[in-house]
């Protein structure tokens, strides 16, 4: 069953819900090694996405994603704004004109999003950033699809890999962002960006399950 424009809109609404629920958790993680605003920023960003959504819901998936990206850049205020904003805008370019997505299309879109994040933030794997959750998740998804898994299964694999990647940030020294100024003191804390990335992937998997049921 392909992913439709209304699935994408619903996904954005779900993410907004999940981030609202996790607002304090993310902020708490950020207060340990950053500037204690990641949860608040992500919540504000997606609330803004919700406001912009109704105007483009009948448009193609590319437009919806680009609009979400623009909404994030213009409202988040912290580093996650340009990073997630670029991710969604690149994803939107990859989905331009499409009204339906197959599993492979979603993979291509996620790859484009990750490329956007790397281009914007110039982080490497192991720098203790959102890249540490996104990269393994997309790798796992690609591998699962290549081995004949369906979308739900592939997203489950991606979620598991993202979670693992997120947890693996705990012992790392931050190399990017405000946390990098802490040096060794950043060890022992889970990266809030990797955490929100994990939540975004997990929400995708949850939706796939709900749709299958």
């Amino acid at each position: 069953m392909p992913i439709t424009t209304s699935d994408v809109s619903e996904y954005l609404r779900k993410v907004a819900e999940v981030l609202a629920e996790n607002k304090e958790y993310l902020t708490e993680l950020d207060s340990a090694i950053g500037d204690a605003d990641h949860g608040i920023n992500m919540d504000r960003g997606f609330q803004n996405v919700l406001r912009k959504l109704p105007a483009v819901e009948d448009k193609d998936i590319g437009t919806i994603l680009k609009t979400a990206g623009m909404a994030l850049v213009s409202s988040v205020g912290g580093a996650s704004g340009p990073l997630y904003g670029t991710a969604f805008m690149q994803a939107g370019m990859a989905a331009a004109g499409k009204r339906e997505l197959a599993a492979e299309d979603l993979l291509a879109i996620l790859e484009a999003a990750l490329k956007g994040v790397l281009m914007r933030g110039r982080a490497n794997l192991g720098d203790k950033t959102m890249v540490d959750a996104l990269t393994p998740a997309i790798d796992a998804m690609r591998e699962a699809l290549e081995n004949g898994a369906d979308l739900t299964e592939a997203l489950d694999k991606a979620t598991a890999a993202a979670e693992e990647g997120m947890k693996a940030t705990i012992p790392l020294i931050a190399k990017k962002g405000r946390a990098s100024y802490l040096g060794e003191r950043s060890i022992g804390h889970q990266d809030p960006g990797a955490t929100s990335s994990y939540l975004l992937i997990r929400t995708m998997a949850e939706m796939a399950h709900a749709k299958q049921a």
């Binding site: 850049v73 205020g77 580093a79 996650s80 704004g81 340009p82 904003g85 670029t86 914007r120 933030g121």
Partner: peptide
């Protein structure tokens, strides 16, 4: 001055 300022300026 810092990361997000650079990135937002780029955008």
């Amino acid at each position: 001055d810092l990361g997000s300022a650079v990135m937002t300026a780029q955008m």
